[in-house]
């Protein structure tokens, strides 16, 4: 049985494997470094704002049925390096803990945008699954209604992400300030 389900779920692995040669090649030729140069030019950029902006783009585009981004395609090569560069541009070198925090939040932004945007689009797997479930029970529930009632949560999810990103920026600032204090005392 494992064999059958393993084969049925190959679609989960396929995009990652196919994406990696491109991403690896672009990284070798300076994709991350270029993204960092661009982000340093922007005075307003912070790690939290970069991540929040990506979350917004991800959530809005997928709610219109356009799936762009992804952990392999966007977060590793673009979003995480840009967020790190933005934080470095403000407070200098980052502690290892701050780097982990920034990267983890970049991945979280991808998930929040993806999960809480997709159900607003009617032709998405989740909505069709729910429709199919009700049909099997002999009930007719409109896909439009289900998409509509997914909107309030979408706003709440984005607001929650905004809160976490602000907190992330504050934490990075505090860590940088602590660093300077201990550095100055020596």
């Amino acid at each position: 049985m494992i064999g059958k389900y393993f084969s049925d779920n190959r679609a989960m692995t396929l995009p990652i494997v196919l994406m990696l040669p491109v991403v690896g090649l672009l990284e070798r030729y300076g994709l991350k470094e270029r993204a960092e140069v661009l982000i340093r030019r922007s005075k307003a950029a912070t790690a939290g704002r970069v991540i929040l902006l990506y979350t917004a783009v991800r959530q809005i585009s997928i709610s219109l049925g356009v799936s762009i981004g992804g952990h392999a395609g966007a977060v590793r090569p673009l979003v995480a390096p840009m967020a790190e560069a933005a934080a470095r541009g403000r407070g200098g070198e980052l502690s290892a803990a701050s780097v982990v925090q920034i990267r983890a939040h970049a991945a979280a932004g991808e998930n929040i945008g993806n999960f809480f945007g997709e159900d607003i689009f009617i032709a998405v797997g989740a909505i069709l699954l729910m429709k199919g479930f009700f049909e099997a029970q002999g009930m007719n529930v409109s896909v439009w209604a289900m998409a509509l009632w997914s909107i309030p949560t979408a706003f709440i999810a984005f607001a929650a992400m905004w809160w976490r990103c602000r907190l992330l920026d504050r934490r990075i600032e505090r860590a940088a300030a602590d660093e300077q204090k201990t550095g100055g005392a020596q």
Binding site: V23, G30, L31, E33, R34, V37, S67, P77
Partner: peptide
């Protein structure tokens, strides 16, 4: 080496990445 490539290629490095979506 990567910084060197980045300076040479500038924003051209992005467009293959954008071609996927």
């Amino acid at each position: 080496e990567r910084v060197g490539h980045a300076e040479r290629l500038k924003n051209r490095i992005f467009w293959p990445a954008l071609l996927i979506p």
